[in-house]
Design a protein around this nucleic acid. Structure first.
Length: 622
DNA sequence: TCCGAAAACTTTTTT
DNA sequence: AGTTTTCGGA
């Protein structure tokens, strides 16, 4: 790949980038804080910046870019986008990881250097204690008066070794010492949680500065995605690694979408970062997601969160008639569900949106709404999909089943068998199998054999599908046959998360159970795969799960004091949740409220009224 | 075992 | 705020 001069670089694969994005791409003398509001194209910006650094040789081999995200699918998306923009040769030096995967990698490489008694056994296991387990620990060791939640926080925040700790209450020192000791002795294996791994990495870096120097030499450029959600431990690690180094950090995110403080995110990550790392600020002003009328309302909410919020430039064209936003008032939950169901069904039937384009969001307990709205929609022959629900017989949410490696591999082959055309799946299967079977992508002879094997397997699958109608049994047989072809052992070796039987089986059971569910009432295999993928179903989820997603139409169920008992105006976590829900919509957003559940939220109502959003009687079945 | 009062819980990611 | 779980006393 030829190296180009920085002044000759232009964005790839997109028509144009806004000036702030171009500035933030070319600015590499300072650390950067990039404020990217909803729909600003964060992933695209990071991908273009990666392309700039790699293709101009500013980040030259063997130097690499480290990109850290929170969720594994965000890390994966970014990696894919970078590959699309600058090709496999350059994107090979783009390491897109979650914070946890990055930290675990360091413990796996340098765990032996962690001083006793904190040295983990090499075959340690990852633990996910529930809130119950923390309380139990305290009770077992004679601290029933302390709260498990506090212990969880203390473990995540206290640096190692505990001996150097100087807490206000000396009891905590004993508790933490015992906690770390128990995790190492309780079972034959060391058990670690991710916050513990974070603390261990920090400890080993403080003991051996050569590791820090090594990482700084490898990564002169670091990207930090969704920075507003950074936890104390993660930020502490970041400082340990890159503060006062030559590494250039680019933190991207949006304070207004900070809805994880209750779960341990820093309340002021951007401000702290800007001060500590002396970062320059750029603000992305485009909104590629929503049309001008919605952006106008979003801006009013944004200003109530941060008075200085800049007004985004809406790039989406409005393509619906009528009001794009309203608060629908109902008297009781039954008419609320029935009115909503008939509205959704009418909008689908008129062709203005497909079911999967229209999301129903709730603040919490999607299961409860699923039981009420599900049957109402079913009577209009519209299916509702609660993505947080576990399929019958499985112990993993539908949403997570879809992103599992075992699912993506199996379903790609399944679609190739069931559907007329699935070009993306062909490439995905070839790429995945090359990796799993350890074949070189540039060895033509090997690739040809691989392609022939896949073609012949697809023929087998088609024959099976022609001879067997979808049923519990035929679904199980298909999954088994595909996994035998792929090789379960080989697949599991390439996915670290599948090392333990329990974790692999959880994913595989989820896949099988969701497939069986998707086959119910289905007469053909094409329908089964579409059901599996959620095509033709209205997605239902919490606001938190909707973060990062977008939909043609968003319906937020329950804008009332019963749902938002703790609502505080201005810059509160609740108001930010409201903002996140609102900004998921491309074309329109409606809220429902119901008198039986509580009063109207007067602060939100007033704010909405100022920008012309009316509270109106909700649609009713005719 | 039952009853009423009090407390807890609601939003989540991660190999 | 409203629902669910837990706990103590009978």
């Amino acid at each position: 790949m030829p190296i180009i001069k920085p002044k000759h670089w232009t964005p790839k694969g997109v028509a144009s980038l806004e000036p702030a994005a171009l500035n933030a791409i070319r600015e590499n003398d300072n650390n950067l804080c990039v404020v990217a509001s909803a729909g600003a194209g964060k992933t695209e910006f990071l991908a273009q910046k990666a392309d700039y650094l790699l293709s101009t040789g500013i980040c030259r081999a063997p130097h690499r870019i480290l990109a850290i995200s929170f969720k594994s699918d965000a890390a994966k998306n970014l990696k894919d986008r970078v590959r699309q923009r600058c090709g496999p040769e350059f994107s090979g030096r783009f390491d897109s990881l979650t914070f946890d995967a990055f930290s675990k990698g360091l413990v796996d490489r340098f765990g032996a250097l962690i001083p006793a008694p904190y040295t983990p056994s090499p075959d340690y296991e990852i633990a996910f204690p529930g809130f119950r387990d923390w309380d139990d620990f305290l009770k077992r060791h004679g601290y029933p008066h302390l709260s498990g939640k506090k212990l969880e926080q203390a473990v995540a925040r206290c640096r190692l070794p505990i001996a150097t700790l100087n807490p206000k209450n000396p009891e905590w020192k004993d508790v933490l010492t015992r906690f770390w000791a128990e995790y190492y002795r309780d079972v034959n294996l060391t058990q670690l949680t991710f916050p513990m791994i974070n603390r261990l990495v920090n400890y080993v870096l403080s003991c051996d500065p050569r590791i820090v120097t090594g990482l700084q030499a490898t990564y002169p450029f670091v990207f930090l995605d969704e920075f507003q959600d950074t936890t104390f431990g993660q930020y502490d690690l970041l400082k340990r690694l890159f503060l006062n180094s030559d590494a250039r950090l680019t933190a991207v995110g949006d304070n207004k979408q900070r809805i994880m403080v209750w779960a341990g995110a820093m309340p002021n990550a951007f401000k702290t970062f800007t001060t500590d790392f002396d970062a320059m600020q750029e603000t992305l002003l485009s909104n590629w997601r929503s049309h001008p009328e919605l952006v106008e309302i979003q801006h009013a909410i944004a200003v109530s969160l941060e008075a200085t919020s800049a007004k985004p430039d809406a790039k989406r064209v409005k393509d619906v008639d009528g009001d794009v936003c309203a608060i629908w008032a109902y008297d009781d939950p039954v008419s609320e569900c029935e009115g909503l169901a008939s509205w959704i069904s009418a909008a689908i039937n008129s062709g203005e949106m497909t079911p999967e384009d229209c999301a129903v969001l709730v603040r919490f307990k999607p299961d409860v709404l699923e039981r009420e709205l599900g049957p109402a929609l079913a009577s209009h022959r519209v299916r509702l999909r609660n993505i947080a629900r576990s399929p019958d017989g499985a112990n993993i949410a539908i949403q997570d089943v879809l992103t599992e490696d075992v699912t993506q591999c199996t379903m790609a082959l399944m679609r190739l068998g069931a559907l007329q055309k699935a070009p993306d799946d062909w490439h995905a299967v070839i790429e995945k199998l090359s990796l799993i079977w350890g074949l070189a992508p540039d060895n033509e002879a090997e690739q040809e054999i691989l392609q022939n094997q896949v073609s012949s397997k697809i023929k087998d699958l088609r024959a099976f599908m022609a001879a067997n109608t979808p049923s519990n049994n035929s679904c199980a047989v298909l999954v088994q046959s595909i996994l035998e072809f792929v090789g379960e052992a080989e697949l599991r070796v390439t996915v670290p998360a599948y090392r333990r039987d329990k974790d692999y089986l959880r994913a595989r059971t989820g896949l099988t159970c969701l497939l069986k569910e998707s086959a119910e009432g289905g007469t053909d295999w094409a329908t089964v795969t579409r059901n599996f993928d959620g095509v033709g179903q209205v997605p239902l989820m919490s606001i938190h799960k909707s973060k990062g997603l977008e939909f043609h139409t968003v319906i937020f169920f329950g804008l009332d004091s019963g749902t938002w008992w703790s609502f505080k105006p201005q810059d509160s976590e609740e108001m930010r949740a409201f903002f996140v829900a609102f900004t998921r919509a491309m074309q329109r957003v409606y809220f429902t409220s119901c008198r039986r559940r509580g009063n109207r939220l007067s602060y939100v109502d007033d704010l909405m009224a100022e920008v012309g959003v009316e509270r109106v009687p909700g649609p009713t079945p005719d």
